[in-house]
Design a protein around this nucleic acid. Sequence first.
DNA 1: CTTGCCCTTGACGTCAATGTGAGGTTTTAC
DNA 2: GTAAAACCTCACATTGACGTCAAGGGCAAG
Lengths: 154, 154
Amino acid sequence: MRIGEIAHQAGVSTRALRYYEEQGLLTPERTASGQRTYPESAVERVRLIQQFFTAGLPSRTILQLLPCVDTGQASPKAFELLASERNRITAAMADLAAARDALDRMIDIANHPTPEHCPALREPAWAPYNPADATRTAPHPTAARDESATLITM
Amino acid sequence: MRIGEIAHQAGVSTRALRYYEEQGLLTPERTASGQRTYPESAVERVRLIQQFFTAGLPSRTILQLLPCVDTGQASPKAFELLASERNRITAAMADLAAARDALDRMIDIANHPTPEHCPALREPAWAPYNPADATRTAPHPTAARDESATLITM
DNA sequence: CTTGCCCTTGACGTCAATGTGAGGTTTTAC
DNA sequence: GTAAAACCTCACATTGACGTCAAGGGCAAG
């Protein structure tokens, strides 16, 4: 299959496929005239690559992980990478959940014309922003993200 | 409080705070000499803004949402925005979960020396990538993302 | 042979949230 | 008073996964 067909079936642009090749993620054959030829299995591979990109993995990391997909083997280094990326994703999901909760509170508030009946207003999440003060605040410990490669099961 | 103090307490750079102001997200007072002065409540506001940024909301969208945070009111348009962003986040969480599952399968496989005992190998998720074929594939319907503003409860 | 579509490489553009440095002013500490 | 630290504006640099245009070659149909 040529590049256009793969692009269509996998739902990506031909530009993206050439980019993947440039990054070493995909290595199509070439015809005598230089045109790329992909095996049927490339469609699934492209979908997997896209899934990783969507999850925020950089191409360099995906490049390190793809051999494990093929061989089913993971060197200690690759294993550490797998674990740390898994943790990154879990943390990102928690961040998303927190933001979604914030949106939910806003939706809740906006849905209730009378604040008395609004559950979200019983625990005031945000102080009103009034740029007309000049007092001080006690320092609040900003939560640091765990960057180690220990596997967090969740 | 001046910009450095806010930056420290909120855990962001002063550059970021100036950027937020440029985007209209934060409007500090100014001293006679031109230095920015923030109210105590700005720390919380910056944390909220950061939360939204982390969730992938662009500054333009945050700018539209912040008034709702302050007033507790949401115009129909703002409401639609709230709903669609909520859905975006939910979809992103699903994408992350899918990628995490893929990593989990890889971890599973790498953990089991004998494929017979590996649960992840019983449903072959990926075809082996072999760039040495030239066959055809039946088209596979790529799932389209729901872009409407209907509220998906999850 | 030519029309038309798909392919090639190359290189510059995009977008968004910052980083970074220059060059100058204000505040703070001694 | 003076020096260090923090602040100001302006403006260019970065990063990553592509988009987009340019200039040309390959290939089936009529």
